[in-house]
Amino acid sequence: MTRVAARGAALLALALITLAFLGPFLWVVLASLQPGANLTAQPTFEFSLVNFRAVMNWETIYLPVLNSIAISGGTALVTVLVAGLAAYPLSRYKLRYKRHFMLTLLFTTGLPVTAIMVPVYSMFFRFNLYGSVPAMVLFLAASSLPFAIWMMKNFMDGVPVSLEEAAWVDGAGWVQSLARVVLPLMAPGVAVVAIFVFVAQWGNFFVPFVLLDTPEKQPAAVTIYTFFSQYGQVAYGELAAFSIIYTAPAVLLYVAVNKYLAGSFSFAGSVKG
């Protein structure tokens, strides 16, 4: 095969793959803009924002999205605080069981969270925590911690200890040193961890579906499922509009951290701690 032909074949293959990946997106984009849309991505020349206007009300969008923000934001906040504290001794001190601890955390990141939902539900039920949003946020934070501590520690390792020494000379303890010197210097890292946790929880469907009791507490992931599982009586245009509004923040935040995440894919090959 000549070089030109090989190049052409590769481009053609890439074009086909790209089109195949675009296929399922077609409907959601078209249907959201067309009044009276059904399940077909059939372009008509009738475009309007009527679907978006129809879902812009308290029960459909505002409340579920606010719940999503509270749950994902709360989880991100707790995770970053706790992981930031935990990363400090792991990054700065020589500890006897540090390696074991870090390896155990890495091992935990591989365990399927879905599988522990039955015992978690049973525990929540026994301790009267079923339906409690704060309790669920603590659970979500705990499940995000192993990965968050790893990321935080890696970012913290990048802050030279010498910069802290000046603070110690001035009599600062580890708390001041962490809060005034280390964290500000690794602010981008903290933001990456926070956004990473936020986006992961934004899309989380199973945990709130199992642990929350009333529709008023549910985040958008669950509301959208309830919306479209009512087969037959769904306003598809509105479902598509809802999907787009709900997806947008996840996409925007992903774009924001894209640059930092790129490095973490060599993570799969070898992990540096």
């Binding site: 409907w27 469907f205 992931a221 669950v222 499922y225 479209f228 997806t247 996840a250």
Partner: peptide, 12 residues
């Protein structure tokens, strides 16, 4: 998000 992915494929 996975629920939206499911909705897209359901329609597809």
């Amino acid at each position: 998000p996975e629920v939206v992915a499911a909705a897209c494929w359901f329609a597809f």
